[in-house]
C-alpha cells in the first residue's frame, strides 16, 4: 500500500511524516514520530492513555486515523514543558503525589491541562466526571483530583507559575 505524506504540528514543531491509510495516530506518533510519551493500555478507546490534544481538544489517538490528523496541531505531555520548566499542572501532579507507576500520567496531565483551560473554576464532581474516560490503577484518583483542583488557581490567573 502506498503511503502518503501528512504534515502536522507536534508540540509546536512542524513534522512531515509518511503514513499509511490504516495507521492510527497512536501508531504514527509512537513509532514514526517517536513521541513515546503517548502510551496505550487497551488500544480500543477504553483506557485513554493515548490521549493527546488535537487542535486543542483531547482525543484518544488509538481511535483516530493518522491521515485524519493531516494539518492538525498535536500536543502531548512533553509539549507542556516550556524552557525546561514543568507547567503548573505538571508541578501540581508532582507535589500532590498524583502518580505512581506513571504510565497513565502523561495522558492525565494533558487532559487535565485542557480541562482547566476550559474550566478554571471546576467543582470536584466535574473533575471526576471529566477524568472518567481515563484509567489509573495505582493512585485511586484522589491525589490526581487534588492536583487538578489545586492547579486551577494558575489557570484562573490567581497565581503565576513560578519555579
Amino acid at each position: 500500500m502506498a503511503g502518503r505524506m501528512i504534515t502536522l504540528r507536534l508540540n509546536g514543531q512542524e513534522r512531515r511524516v509518511e503514513v499509511e491509510d490504516n495507521e492510527t495516530l497512536l501508531y504514527v506518533l509512537r513509532y514514526k514520530l517517536k513521541e513515546m510519551s503517548v502510551k496505550s493500555a487497551c488500544w480500543k478507546g477504553e483506557c485513554g492513555l493515548c490521549t493527546v490534544l488535537m487542535d486543542g481538544k483531547p482525543v484518544k489517538s488509538c481511535m483516530v486515523l493518522a491521515v485524519e490528523a493531516d494539518g492538525s496541531d498535536i500536543v502531548t505531555a512533553t509539549g507542556l514543558v516550556k524552557d525546561g520548566e514543568l507547567s503548573p499542572i505538571q508541578k501540581a501532579f508532582v507535589e500532590h503525589g498524583a502518580l505512581q507507576c506513571g504510565f497513565c500520567t502523561p495522558a492525565f496531565v494533558v487532559a487535565a491541562h485542557h480541562f482547566l483551560q476550559k474550566n478554571p473554576n471546576p467543582t470536584r464532581e466535574q473533575v471526576k466526571e471529566f477524568l472518567s474516560g481515563l484509567i489509573c490503577r495505582c493512585t485511586g484518583y484522589a491525589q490526581i483530583i487534588d492536583a487538578i483542583m489545586d492547579a486551577a488557581k494558575y489557570y484562573r490567573g490567581e497565581q503565576k507559575a513560578s519555579p
Binding site: 478507546g45 485513554g48 490521549t51 483531547p58 482525543v59 484518544k60 487532559a111 466526571e129 474516560g133
Partner: peptide
Amino acid sequence: STHLADAILRNR
C-alpha cells in the same frame, strides 16, 4: 449526551 462514552471520546 453527557453520559455517552466519556468526556474525551465525546470530542469525536
